[in-house]
Design a binder for these strands. Structure first.
Lengths: 109, 109
DNA sequence: GGTGTATACCTTGCAATACAAGATATCGAA
DNA sequence: TTCGATATCTTGTATTGCAAGGTATACACC
């Protein structure tokens, strides 16, 4: 219990959905984007399996496009189901984060 | 992915530490306390193993006291190591939660 | 042509942890 | 003595972030 690994469980997927909603994006780019929001950099072993799972669940759809330098990119965009899931994620997040803040504020800070 | 189970990973332990810091408390009471802060009610299968783990790691110390009705209560209090861990948890929480909020706010809300 | 580097994606196996389900024990009241 | 409330613990399962390793494409440079 010395890093943020456990804390990210059940949070990362919602963040990916939120970023994808902003516009089509491919996996490799997503990793960089997450960092720009304040997350520490994620390994690809984290992101790709997650994206595949969300695709399998029908939350995102994909299209392959040629890259200027490198193999084809797999672009992700949000499905309707993905938007619904994002909405539910936000509800859960607000409920949990406000509860945590309640506990921590009580502490006197 | 329909409940807050995954989202609580790596968060619950810090919340327990924060509550214990407020004053001695026993497990059964902790479950109720968490609810009062806005969490849904936790099963004992969640709380007791966590408390035992934290005791084993030296984050909390325990004393048994007779109960008015029922078996002995196991009261928990924070050790110095527990306070340090709580401080680190708060740092992690603030870093992660602000990152998540960055992502969600960008979305336009 | 060949070599290296950056880009881009995927797979396997591990570790951590919330939780359901079930077991056990104590005490007071009916 | 039987029941319910209190109080704790154990076992097994599912999910998920991540490290490590593998593959493939395109371009620049010699």
């Amino acid at each position: 219990m010395a890093d943020t690994t456990q804390m990210l469980k059940g949070i990362l997927d919602g963040c990916l959905l939120a970023i994808i909603k902003e516009g089509e994006i491919y996996g490799y780019e997503l990793a960089a984007k997450l960092e720009s929001y304040g997350f520490h950099s994620f390994s690809e072993g984290t992101i790709y399996p997650l994206l595949l799972r969300m695709q399998k669940e029908g939350l995102v759809s994909t299209t392959l496009r040629k890259s200027t330098a490198g193999p084809k990119r797999k672009y992700y965009s949000l499905t309707e189901k993905g938007e619904q899931e994002l909405g539910q994620f936000i509800t859960r997040w607000e409920q949990v984060s406000s509860s945590v803040n309640n506990v921590l504020d009580k502490r006197g800070k």
